[in-house]
Design a protein around this nucleic acid. Structure first.
Length: 302
DNA sequence: ACCCTCACCTGCACGC
DNA sequence: TGCGTGCAGGTGAGGG
């Protein structure tokens, strides 16, 4: 159930095992996973393409693929357009595609050998040229996959609106303060808006607010400069800590696990009624819109 | 632009 | 044992 650190972990785990591999065949068991693209079109485009890179934008996993040179009329429309627009030598290499994957709540990648049994909820299977399968499974079926020409990445809906990466220069204290000052929503809500602050989910938002000692229900625009700076630091610290401590291999089981350091890492999330680690007050929880917010009523008074 | 509710799905833990 | 309820780390649509 991934927030940015979990997605980053998946990217790092995928990269060494799939980059350089060619997808020789695929099965899509759940057409809505790739909608509105049809299964036939998806397979036609992806089959034979070589995975050239795996990266991340926010919580999207971006798998770069290079389609092979096509001989005749079997070329895709995108390829044909490129062939017309670009020099012949470039066109011969085929099209550059991106498979953007969002895991949502329960999406996972598995890297299986050919005789490993497919687990339940395996919705997409990519057969690689080394007798292995890259499997996407997703119990709740919320995950999405989208295949499009690499050139369209900057314009892709859902991606181009995303806020700057939390570890990039663009996500500065100034940017953060500006963003807060323009919103009258509560901090908790704002921190979950991927177009404003990128990478947090329900857990890390709660943890960042706790570390910054700021009330989740404070109005964003009313947060003082020093508090905004504190929260900015807390966001980066929380995400960085998680990225550094998530462990586990996609070769074996379900994506990732948390190292021992995590034992004491979640200080408020899922700890309703337990004593605050700093002041021993009882951690509180409220739900709105089906989502829980956890906080310490004493440390995060306002 | 915002807020709220609902929707998308399955499974698990809980209380009776 | 079962059954009903609420909850789950994400996001988007639709109405106000």
């Amino acid at each position: 159930m991934p927030e940015l650190p979990e997605v980053e972990h998946v990217v790092r785990a995928l990269r060494p095992v799939v980059v350089g591999r060619t997808i020789v065949a695929s099965d899509i068991e759940l057409p809505k996973l790739i909608a509105p693209t049809s299964v036939a079109s998806f397979k036609r485009q992806i089959t034979g393409s070589k995975i050239t890179g795996v990266s991340r934008r926010g919580k999207f996993i971006l798998i770069q693929c290079q389609t092979p040179m096509r001989r005749n009329g079997s070329a895709s429309h995108a390829h044909r357009r490129n062939a017309a627009a670009l020099p012949a030598r470039r066109a011969k290499r085929g099209a550059s595609l991106i498979l953007a994957v969002h895991l949502r709540m329960t999406g996972k990648f598995l890297y299986l050998s050919i005789d490993d049994e497919l687990p339940k909820h395996s919705h997409a299977i990519f057969y690689l040229d080394n007798e292995r399968r890259l499997v996407f499974r997703d119990q709740r079926k919320f995950g999405v996959m989208k295949l499009f020409p690499a050139a369209e990445l900057p314009d892709t809906k859902g991606i181009h609106e995303l806020a700057p990466e939390p570890f990039g220069d663009e996500f500065s204290v100034d940017y953060f303060r500006e963003t807060l000052s323009r919103s009258r929503r509560t901090l908790k809500t704002l921190l979950l808006d991927q177009n404003k602050v990128l990478g947090l989910g329900n857990i890390y938002a709660a943890e960042a607010l706790f570390r910054a000692r700021i009330n989740p229900f404070a109005t964003a625009s009313s947060v003082t400069r020093p508090r905004a700076a504190r929260l900015h630091t807390a966001i980066q610290d929380v995400l960085r800590f998680a990225v550094e401590h998530i462990t586990g291999s996609i070769k074996l089981e379900e994506g990732f696990s948390y190292g021992e350091a995590f034992e004491s890492f979640w200080q408020v999330y899922d700890r309703e009624g337990e004593p605050c680690v700093k002041c021993a007050a009882k951690i509180r929880r409220v739900t709105h819109g089906g989502r829980s917010t956890y906080w310490c009523p004493r440390c995060q008074r306002r």
